[in-house]
Design a protein around this nucleic acid. Structure first.
Length: 147
DNA sequence: GCCAACGTTGGC
DNA sequence: GCCAACGTTGGC
């Protein structure tokens, strides 16, 4: 799951303990949260538009998908005029903090680590919620903890 | 700040 | 249903 640290970083999550991952306004990303993610699923927390950009730590899915009510709130930056009470259109999950890596596994690290060639973040960087295989997860965690 | 890649919108 | 125009994302 990706976030711009200027907006919400791994440190913010460490402070909050848990947060509602609101504001995702992309159908593919929404569908992952709605259809695929379950409480307990491990999450790589990725800092985009950052210095350095890359995986900053680990989190965990803490709820099933449920409506993102920010879409109904005209004063929210995530407001969507097409969202309604009956069909809020957008979905989020709760995410809880697990650990912060001692550093950041940079995008460059990901690119040059054998076994990670197919990670979507390398080729489909714009997708803000994306699946990671068990093996990719394992490799990234190992990299992150050895920084 | 620039720009390429991508997703969405809307006219036809 | 196509596709051009547009807006957004995100790496650099």
């Amino acid at each position: 799951m990706k976030s711009e640290p200027g907006s919400y970083s791994i440190d913010d999550l460490a402070r909050d303990g848990k947060t509602a991952w609101e504001g995702v306004r992309n159908y593919q990303a929404r569908n992952f949260m709605r259809d695929e993610m379950r409480p307990g699923d491990p999450v790589l927390f990725y800092h985009s538009n950052a210095d350095p950009t890359g995986v900053a730590g680990l989190a965990r899915v803490a709820s099933r998908g449920y409506p993102d009510r920010a879409a109904l709130d005209p004063s929210s930056p995530y407001y969507d005029e097409k969202a309604t009470e009956e069909d809020p259109r957008w979905v989020l999950v709760d995410v809880e903090f697990v650990e912060r890596f001692p550093g950041v596994v940079t995008l460059d690290d990901l690119r040059r680590t054998p076994g990670l060639e197919k990670m979507l973040v390398i080729n489909k960087s714009r997708l803000s919620v994306q699946p990671v295989t068990d093996e990719e997860y394992r490799v990234v965690v190992e990299l992150g903890r050895s920084l």
